[in-house]
Structure formats: C-alpha cells, structure tokens
C-alpha cells in the first residue's frame, strides 16, 4: 500500500475533484429539473413549485443529498485551491513567452477563474434564495386543506420582477454565473471522467459529446428561466 494514501497523493486529489464535480453535475440536473417548473408556475400561483421546494427541504433522503451537495461544493472548492497552489509552486518562474492557446482549450486553462466566478454567483444566489428559504422570512401560502407552506415562488417572482431595482443587475450576475458555469463544465465534465480513468477510444467521444451538450443546455435553460421570469412579469 502506498505511503501517501488515498487523501494525500496528487491522483487522490484528482479523484476527489472529479467525484465532487460529477456529483455536482447531477445536482445541477436535479436543480434544473425543479426550476423548469417556473416556466409554468404562474398558472397555479406557484403551488406545485412551493410543494416541490418543501419536499426538497424536508424529505430525509433529499436532506442527505443536500448535505452531500454542500460538502461537495466545499470540497471541490478547497481541493481546487490546494491543487492550484501546488500547481503554481510547480512552476516558480513563468515563461516570458507562452502560446498556450496552441495546445489547450481556453476553458481548460481557466478553470480556477471560471470556478471563482461561479463561486461568487453561488454565494449571492444562496443568499437570495437558499438563505431566505431556510432562515429568512418567507410569506406563507395557504393550501385548500388549510395547511400553510413557504411561498418560495413569490420570493423568486418578486426578485426577478421589473419593479425590483436590483433585478437587472441580479440577472446580469446570474447570466455571467451561468456563462462561467457553462465554460467550467465544457472542460470539467469530460475531465472528470478522464480523472477517474473512464476513457476508452469507444466511449470518450460519447462522453465528450455528452459533456459539451450538458455544458450548453444546462446554463442556457437556467438563464432562460430567469429571463422568462423577468419578461413575463414586465
């Protein structure tokens, strides 16, 4: 058994990066599936969306998943910083002339920058919604059977309402975040598979294609929802 063990070696860090990254891709898919309800939520006053939100915040199995997600984000973040610092140390003197674009894609060379933008977005995003849902004062919605659930939909709708003075800058940041996310995924998705060794002449094209599709579709849909919310309320 190697002395460095699973947590210390450079490859282990890569596995962690890949595992957390790929798990977060799953999270994105799930989150997007939930958000897609916003396209039709106005029809029932957001009831279905709110029930979904309640389910997501209370159902035990989902709770476990959500803790896994927090952990993944944190680990992905810390691991990424550690790796970046090590990588900087591995080349103390920079080249005077470097033509990196001739041999590697832009996004693959700027994962730290892209990840940082996504992180900034994530902090504001969580402050706006997640914090509100968990700890903020969310208006309650009365259901037919008399029970009350948190009306997250109204928070979202109000946030992206043209009357909200911050709506446009928020949307701008949102779109920027999605843009960065898209490029982050452009490299990250297939890179995750490569890191754990899932590469084969037969499958790597499929994985690559899937990754590219994922990295375009997911951010575009997220963005579309936000734009939709703004436009339809105008």
């Amino acid at each position: 058994m190697a002395q460095t063990g699973i947590l210390k070696s450079s490859l282990a860090k890569k596995y962690a990066m890949a595992a957390t990254g790929l798990f977060l891709c799953l999270f994105l898919a799930g989150h997007l599936a939930g958000n897609l309800q916003l396209f039709t939520a106005a029809a029932d006053g957001g009831r279905q969306f709110n029930e979904y939100a309640k389910f997501m915040t209370t159902f035990p199995a989902v709770k476990v998943l959500s803790y896994l997600t927090y952990f993944s984000v944190l680990f992905h973040l810390v691991d990424g910083i550690v790796l970046s610092l090590q990588n900087r140390k591995a080349r103390p003197v920079r080249y005077a002339m470097e033509r990196a674009s001739t041999n590697a894609g832009w996004s693959s060379r700027n994962m730290m920058l892209l990840g940082t933008i996504v992180l900034v977005f994530l902090v504001t995003h969580m402050q706006n919604f997640w914090w509100q849902m968990h700890f903020g004062s969310v208006p309650m919605q009365q259901l037919e059977d008399g029970t009350q659930i948190k009306d997250l939909y109204s928070v979202v709708a109000a946030f992206f309402h043209p009357d909200n003075g911050f709506a446009l800058p928020a949307i701008g940041l949102y779109l920027l975040g999605q843009f960065a996310l898209g490029f982050h995924l452009w490299h990250g998705f297939s890179s995750g598979f490569q890191s754990v060794g899932l590469r084969h002449p037969k499958f790597s094209q499929i994985i690559g294609g899937l990754g590219k599709a994922f990295s375009v579709v997911v951010p575009v849909l997220f963005s579309a929802i936000v734009v939709f919310m703004y436009i339809t309320q105008a």
């Binding site: 860090k13 990588n87 890179s191």
Partner: peptide, 8 residues
Amino acid sequence: GNCTNTGA
C-alpha cells in the same frame, strides 16, 4: 504539478 487534463 497536478494534472488538470488540459491535454496540452
């Protein structure tokens, strides 16, 4: 350094 799969 660590591999970030840039492929360069």
